[in-house]
């Protein structure tokens, strides 16, 4: 497992630039921040935000003594009278309709448990997957007995958040031909905050790599599959959908997949949200360098990449 220090030790000039005030006057200087709408204000746990008489408390806050107090470190957000704090880094907070990539952790009666980087494992019911033999087919007892032929422990899948249970656990579904088991690729994990909600989370890069950006921070980078070869509605091919076998992947594609994965890792280590333009800029840069793909993970090369693509803005 390769890991990065996301921010190297701050250089000397940065610490010098940080002004420090005498403890007696420090509070007065901090106080002059406004509370305008759309203005990012950072806060930390236990910091009073406003009066609870005039405002409502949202996520990341609590009320004590008629004051709305922050409970996480992050940016204060205000919508009319609702004050909430969004943590800078946290686990994935699911919403209905989100696209997630997950890994099966357990097979239970009529359901699978799926690790989706959330506070609890998600649930994938047998009734919310497409089974071989047509979409309209009824579930039989024999299906329950052979659940492992569809998804086994450790399998990766892409799904959509369907609903929530009373305790906040999410229920997934794969009732679309775009969802289902994943193969021909590699999983990259990034902090969930770095994945923005997009029109489509299925990207296909010109370098022959398909990306699935799960909102939970799991990203699947795989070999490009042509639209025409994707399973049609009529020809729902169970063999292909639930297959555990990879297709043939040529060396160039393998290289492209690992290059894209490494670029994503570097962007994540620098805490930069992923966008298609950024990825393409970085890919172009990485190809120009003509170095080995694994060299990208070296700190200096990664920093150089970030500097180059940030300058292209």
């Amino acid at each position: 497992m390769i890991s990065f220090a996301s921010f190297p030790v701050p250089s000397q000039n940065e610490t010098q630039g940080m002004t420090r005030h005498h403890p007696d006057v420090e509070d007065d200087i901090d106080m002059d921040e406004g509370f305008e709408e759309g203005f990012h204000r950072l806060t930390s746990p236990g910091e009073p935000l406003t009066s609870s008489q005039a405002f409502m408390r949202g996520h990341g806050t609590y009320i004590d003594n008629d004051e709305v107090i922050s409970s996480v470190a992050g940016t204060v957000e205000r919508v009319n009278k609702l004050i909430s704090v969004r943590a800078v880094r946290s686990r994935y907070n699911p919403e209905v309709g989100d696209l997630v990539v997950g890994r099966i952790t357990e097979v239970q009666p009529r359901r699978w448990k799926v690790d989706a980087n959330s506070r609890q494992d998600a649930v994938l019911m047998l009734s919310s997957v497409n089974l071989p033999g047509g979409v309209q087919r009824r579930k039989l007892e024999s299906d329950e007995l052979q659940m492992r032929t569809f998804f086994e422990e450790g399998d990766l899948l892409v799904a959509e958040v369907q609903a929530f249970f009373a305790d906040g656990a999410m229920s997934l579904h794969t009732r679309s031909l775009r969802y289902g088991k994943l193969r021909n690729g590699q999983l990259v994990t990034v902090p969930p905050a770095l994945i923005r909600r997009l029109k489509s989370h299925f990207l296909s890069l010109p370098c022959g790599v398909d990306l699935i950006l799960g909102l939970n921070g799991y990203i699947w980078a795989s070999k490009h599959v042509k639209q025409s070869e994707q399973e049609g509605e009529e020809a729902f091919d169970a063999e292909a959908v639930y297959s555990n076998k990879n297709d043939d992947i040529d060396d160039a594609t393998r290289l492209a997949i690992s290059r894209v994965s490494n670029i994503i890792r570097i962007l994540a280590a620098h805490f930069i949200p992923l966008t298609d333009t950024l990825l393409l800029d970085a890919y172009e840069w990485a190809v120009e360098q003509e170095g080995d793909v694994k060299d990208l993970l070296q700190a200096d090369i990664g920093d150089a990449m970030i500097a180059t693509i940030a300058a292209r803005d």
Binding site: F7, L42, S44, T75, V88, L194, T277, D313
Partner: peptide, 13 residues
């Protein structure tokens, strides 16, 4: 937090 939020905004296009 400032550094992380700052980093998130630099990459925004």
């Amino acid at each position: 937090a400032t550094r992380l939020v700052g980093a998130m905004e630099t990459g925004m296009k």
